[in-house]
Simulated scan of single mutants.
Amino acid sequence: MDPLSDVITVMRAGEPRSARVRWHAPWGQRFMTVPGSAGFQVVLQGSCWLVPREGEPVPLNTGDVLFLPHGSGHGLADSPGSVLAEPACDPRDGARFEERHAAPAVGLDRGDDPAATVTLCGAYQLDRGRTHPLLDSLPEIVHLPARVGHRPELRAAVDLLGAEIGRERPGADALIPALLDTLLLYILRAWFDERAESGAGWPAALADPAVTSALSAVHREPARPWTVETLGAVAGLSRAAFARRFTALTGQPPLSYLTWWRMTTAARLLRESDAPLSAVAARVGYRSEFAFATAFKREFGVAPGRHRRLTDARAAGR
């Protein structure tokens, strides 16, 4: 595993939601702020305007992609001056689009008006307490304009997802979440690739071979008794040089990140499996269940057994 992949596999809670929507001018829609989520908007046909909470409206054209990593409220409209209707579109809940749909994807693509604007919107529910620092470093809105011949893999993911939603074909319930994961990964990869040359933060960390080698080792083998020296050896750097580079690019020392990742992995195992606490402890590098419980309580404020019971209770209440 690598950090970018783990943003998807570990941080997400519940199924992603998406919808294909056809807009007929004049139109304007406000989308609510949804804490603990990440959302996206893709213009599949036509053009429109992004109306952010702050700042000037931004023109969007066919193929443009918006990513909202912090669930920020925003608006879309056919023109900057259009009145925005109050929030009525929450991709976390398909019933808000159409009562008869309960599947992860919802289609509202009715009619054949060539002048209509068609958008693809979606949202991921994230584990609010364990959002990866990679996501925390992103701005409120990531705008990836469409450019001919640029990022063909992202365009392909958009086309596949746009073609699948609303068709109600066999296998859609398995295919669409996988395509949403693919789209999100390509969005993140495109954003970080474009900013890798900045020399700072997570874009630079993911582009740095030494730091990436160490991160991949931690994610692949969290139970291994890592030290700064052994991680530095993986990175091909001295202990001091590695510690300086890792801290400068990721914003935290290597062993702090290691502990954070171990506890994040433990919380996922407690949530998704019925493995005994001793097995969970071993999976994240603790020989003693007591030592694991102490570290876990320091991180989460509750013992791992109670954390599992609380998680199960919340899941049962949904």
Rank of each mutant, 00 (worst) to 15 (best):
I187Q: 14
A233T: 10
A240W: 14
A174F: 13
R239S: 13
E221I: 02
P203I: 09
G232L: 02
A172D: 15
T230F: 00
S198P: 02
Y186F: 07
A205P: 00
P222E: 04
L188W: 00
A172Q: 13
G166C: 13
V211I: 03
Y186W: 06
W191V: 05
E168S: 14
L175S: 11
G166K: 10
F192G: 03
H219F: 14
T227D: 07
V228W: 04
P209T: 08
A217E: 08
G166R: 12
R189I: 06
E221Y: 12
L184G: 07
A235T: 03
R220F: 08
L188K: 02
F192S: 05
P203Q: 10
A172R: 12
A204W: 00
Y186N: 01
Y186H: 08
A214D: 02
P177V: 10
A240F: 14
G201C: 08
A233W: 05
A217K: 09
S198Y: 09
G236I: 09
R224M: 13
A210M: 00
W191E: 09
A235P: 04
D193F: 10
W226C: 03
A214C: 07
E168Q: 14
G236M: 13
G171V: 11
L180M: 15
A178F: 11
V218S: 00
E194Y: 02
P203S: 08
A235F: 05
A240D: 15
R195I: 03
A205H: 01
T227K: 09
A223H: 14
S238A: 15
L179T: 06
S216Y: 04
D193I: 11
R220I: 05
E221Q: 11
S238P: 08
P222S: 04
F192R: 03
A204N: 01
A235S: 02
L188Y: 01
R220S: 15
W202M: 06
G232S: 02
A172K: 11
A207H: 06
A235H: 02
S238R: 14
A204H: 01
L237K: 12
D208M: 07
G232V: 02
A200R: 15
I176S: 07
G171I: 14
L231D: 00
A200F: 13
W226G: 03
S213R: 08
P203Y: 07
L185T: 05
A235C: 06
P170R: 09
R220K: 11
R220M: 12
V228F: 04
A190F: 07
G232E: 00
L179D: 09
T182W: 09
E197H: 11
L180P: 03
L206F: 02
F192L: 08
A190Y: 06
L180F: 04
L184P: 04
S216I: 09
L237W: 06
L206C: 04
L183P: 07
